[in-house]
Design a protein around this nucleic acid. Structure first.
Lengths: 138, 138
DNA sequence: GTAAGCCTTGACGCCGACGTCAAGGCAAGG
DNA sequence: CCTTGCCTTGACGTCGGCGTCAAGGCTTAC
């Protein structure tokens, strides 16, 4: 198949596929006219990349999976290098989630405090509009 | 004080402060020689911005807090517009954390599965090196 | 006098993952 | 023949939050 069909089948754009090729993640055979052609293996490879991308992996982090598939392994994560990326990603996610939860708690606390200090309470009930953003002369 | 001192007191760079000024978040009076000068109010304003930045707020999201302080309010979050930003941020964080936890679970599961399918188990114990990244013929 | 250390404006660089446009080739259908 | 719709390469644009020069001015210390 050609690049347009492949792009459509994985739900992306031709630009993205050419970008992957420029990064060395995807290779293409060519027709006599210079058109890129792909087979089902390329499709699987691409699906692997897209799955990881959806997980938030950087393109570079998908490379071991691609290499693994290219080496003839049944799955992209059949190689230790891919598993190492999984492990790093899990650790990274755990750290990120921890930090975000801490921030969430802090911001939540600030929100409660600020709401409590606001004269008309957490939600305006009887006022048509809040006029707080207009200038007050002191 | 001048820009260098202010930058040092909040732990940032002069470039950052000029950038904030270009975004309209920070204003400066000028000496006869054209040097920017700041007072303690500017310091507090800047500390407000930095605190929010540390929380992961975009610069634009700090604007209501800045406006609030400029309007003479005791804190940057003394205005409904700031509180609205808090609320949006909390919701955004909750959503993000949820998604990240789902991804974490998925990647964790893939990791376990892939480890189980690897012939030599989760951790190489008796082998000096893993030879998996070398080509296999066949 | 001159070097050091502040400051000024302006402008380009960076990162990642593409989007978008330009200018053109090739093939099929009416 | 001409349009339509694929495809090609190349190159510049995007976003945010600055970093990093360049070229120059002011002041202070030696």
């Amino acid at each position: 198949m050609r690049i347009g069909e492949l792009a459509e089948r994985v739900g992306t754009t031709t630009r993205t596929l050419r970008y992957y090729e420029s990064r060395g993640l995807l290779t293409a055979r060519r027709t006599e006219q210079g058109y890129r052609t792909y087979d089902e293996d390329d499709l699987r490879l691409l699906q692997q990349i897209r799955t990881l991308q959806d997980f938030g992996f950087d393109l570079e982090e998908t490379r071991p999976f691609v290499d693994c598939l290219r080496a003839g392994h049944p799955a992209g994560d059949s190689c230790p290098a891919s598993i190492a990326v999984y492990r790093r990603k899990v650790a990274e996610l755990d750290g990120l989630i921890d930090r975000l939860q801490a921030v969430r708690a802090q911001v939540g606390a600030e929100l409660l405090r600020a709401e409590a200090e606001l004269p008309h309470g957490p939600e305006p009930r009887c006022e048509l509009g809040t006029e707080w953003d207009t200038e007050r002369e002191g």
